[in-house]
């Protein structure tokens, strides 16, 4: 669910818009380092993939459903800067062509869904990968932990923005409890999907997974690859 127009007051919306513009600007430069001149077609196709993956709903309970946000997933698969670009593109297209998420709230949505989930997801992923054995088997479970933590992190930042520029007189404590509790549950779905998707891509095309670069592949798998090839 995206933040619509009028949910946060104008100064907060403009401030998050500025943050989002700077983040996308930096990401545009840095993504070229991850994808070189293939950036436009590849980021566009990955954005289309993220959009398609977000269409799949999973039941959360009490008759409601959540869907993948995909920040941590995209960061592990294609690298953090490309992920910021892809998610921002998805949000831009949704806001401009599908009326999903208000235009004045575009910056807020990019900060929450594009920036925070990717930054926290990639941060946790890089940290855990650094301390764990350098084996390709750790990528999927570590990505799942990163995806899990990225969801309540986005909820926390949303609560912070709501406390600063919220337009409804609801106690901040109540918002925090509701948002955090709810997203700790939704995060489980995000983690489960991220775990299996990353695992599937690592098994099929480990060379494509940005987060698996420089990790040792078990010799058994290379032998099996040679047999199938």
């Amino acid at each position: 669910m995206h933040v619509p127009d009028g949910f946060l007051d104008a100064p907060t919306s403009v401030a998050t818009g500025a943050v989002a513009a700077i983040a996308v600007g930096v990401a545009l430069r840095k993504a070229k380092g991850e994808l070189d001149d293939r950036t436009a077609p590849l980021a566009g196709l990955v954005a289309a993939f993220v959009f398609a993956a977000q269409m799949i709903n999973f039941p959360v309970g009490a008759g409601t459903s959540g869907h993948l946000m995909g920040g941590a997933l995209a960061a592990v698969l294609v690298g953090p800067w490309t992920a910021v670009l892809c998610l921002s593109t998805v949000l831009l297209v949704q806001g401009l062509l599908m009326a999903d998420g208000g235009l004045t709230a575009l910056g807020t949505n990019i900060v929450l869904i594009g920036l925070v989930t990717t930054a926290v997801g990639w941060g946790v992923f890089a940290l855990l990968r650094a301390v764990l054995p350098k084996r390709i088997g750790v990528v999927a479970p570590v990505a799942a932990v990163a995806a899990y933590l990225s969801v309540p992190a986005a909820a926390l930042v949303f609560t912070g923005l709501f406390a600063v520029g919220g337009t409804a007189p609801v106690e901040n404590g109540a918002v925090l409890t509701a948002m955090l509790g709810w997203h700790l549950v939704i995060g489980l779905g995000e983690a489960a999907v991220t775990f299996v998707v990353v695992g599937a891509v690592v098994a099929a095309r480990p060379d494509l997974v940005h987060g698996a670069r420089g990790l040792r592949r078990p010799s058994r798998a290379t032998a099996a690859e040679e047999v199938t090839a």
Binding site: F49, A53, I56, L77, V196, V201
Partner: peptide, 10 residues
């Protein structure tokens, strides 16, 4: 489903 999504990504 998730393996399907993995294939879709590739």
């Amino acid at each position: 489903l998730a393996r399907t999504l993995g294939a879709l990504f590739v």
